[in-house]
């Protein structure tokens, strides 16, 4: 086992997680290698130093405060909590709403008001609409045959009857 592999295995020996076989291999190498022995000693020093990061006990009111929070918390996340957890969806919805608002508020194309002559013509068309519903009149509308090119009627129905 070379020093590089030993270095990678040192931590598991120091923290006590190494398997027996691995530990014995490392310890055997360290006994014969001054550099790795020093390395291991330094690692053990760091491990011991970290013992000074003190632990804390939860305060006596910890459980009571937790139960109070459990009582006041809804079973499901609150709306704003849900929103913060789904920011992508919220962003998409916000973008869609913004587009909808923009479309509804954008200036509409102003069409010119129809002239009075045009209005009268439109009114006449509307007024004569019942005539078009009378199929007898339309079927015998001879005036159409007087129009230029009216001879070629082979593809047109002769009558609506």
């Amino acid at each position: 086992m070379d020093c590089e592999r030993i270095e990678a295995a040192l931590l598991a020996v120091v923290d006590g997680r190494a398997a027996k076989q691995e530990r014995e291999r490392v310890e055997g190498h360290v006994a014969a290698c001054g550099a790795c022995a020093r390395r291991m000693e330094e690692m053990q020093g760091v491990w011991s130093d970290l013992d000074s990061l003190r632990a804390v006990e939860p305060s006596p009111s910890f459980d009571a405060r937790l139960r109070a929070r459990m009582a006041e918390q809804p079973a499901r996340p609150r709306f704003f909590e849900w929103m913060t957890g789904n920011m992508r969806l919220v962003a998409v919805v916000a973008a869609l709403v913004a587009v909808a608002v923009w479309i509804s508020l954008r200036p509409t194309i102003q069409r010119p008001a129809p002239s009075s002559a045009q209005a009268q013509q439109d009114f006449a068309v509307v007024k004569n609409l019942p005539v078009l519903e009378n199929y007898d009149v339309v079927a015998n509308f001879d005036v159409l045959s007087d129009l230029p090119g009216a001879e070629d009627t082979s593809t047109q129905p002769q009558s609506l009857e």
Partner: peptide
């Protein structure tokens, strides 16, 4: 972990 402990070794 190796990098972290190495950093700690140097700093400590």
């Amino acid at each position: 972990l190796f990098r972290a402990y190495e950093t700690l070794r140097v700093r400590l």
